[in-house]
Simulated assay, not measured.
Amino acid sequence: MNKINHPPHYGGDNPYETIKVLESWLSIEELKGFYKGNAIKYISRAGKKGDELEDFKKAKYYIKRLIKMKKFRKLKKLLKE
């Protein structure tokens, strides 16, 4: 089990993992805010609750999801043209 991408205390890698549920239920704008907020949270507290590198990796996880979302929206827009 990956502590960064699929921590066991958030449901692990299963269909009801919290991140998957949020991605299904939230609007695009809500999800974007969720990702940004979590990235900011992990960067701002890096090293204060434990391993600084782990906090930066967690922030990177959410930033990568924002990037994927942006790429997907661009591709979707191109396909509509």
Rank of each mutant, 00 (worst) to 15 (best):
residue 2 N to W: 06
residue 2 N to T: 14
residue 2 N to P: 10
residue 4 I to N: 03
residue 5 N to H: 12
residue 8 P to M: 13
residue 8 P to A: 09
residue 9 H to K: 13
residue 9 H to R: 07
residue 10 Y to L: 15
residue 11 G to M: 09
residue 13 D to V: 03
residue 13 D to R: 12
residue 14 N to H: 14
residue 14 N to Y: 11
residue 15 P to L: 10
residue 16 Y to P: 04
residue 20 K to R: 06
residue 23 E to M: 09
residue 27 S to T: 13
residue 27 S to Y: 01
residue 28 I to W: 08
residue 28 I to M: 05
residue 29 E to T: 13
residue 29 E to Q: 04
residue 30 E to A: 06
residue 30 E to T: 03
residue 30 E to V: 00
residue 31 L to Y: 02
residue 34 F to H: 15
residue 35 Y to H: 14
residue 36 K to H: 03
residue 36 K to E: 11
residue 38 N to D: 01
residue 40 I to K: 06
residue 40 I to H: 05
residue 42 Y to M: 09
residue 44 S to H: 05
residue 45 R to M: 06
residue 47 G to H: 08
residue 48 K to I: 09
residue 50 G to E: 12
residue 51 D to P: 09
residue 52 E to M: 14
residue 54 E to P: 01
residue 54 E to W: 06
residue 57 K to I: 05
residue 57 K to Y: 15
residue 58 K to S: 10
residue 59 A to D: 07
residue 59 A to E: 08
residue 60 K to T: 10
residue 62 Y to S: 09
residue 63 I to H: 10
residue 63 I to C: 15
residue 63 I to T: 14
residue 63 I to Y: 12
residue 64 K to N: 15
residue 64 K to A: 10
residue 66 L to K: 10
residue 66 L to E: 08
residue 66 L to D: 07
residue 67 I to A: 09
residue 68 K to L: 02
residue 69 M to W: 06
residue 69 M to C: 02
residue 70 K to R: 13
residue 70 K to E: 14
residue 71 K to N: 06
residue 72 F to M: 13
residue 74 K to P: 02
residue 74 K to F: 09
residue 75 L to T: 12
residue 75 L to S: 07
residue 75 L to N: 13
residue 75 L to V: 13
residue 76 K to T: 04
residue 76 K to F: 10
residue 79 L to G: 01
residue 81 E to H: 04
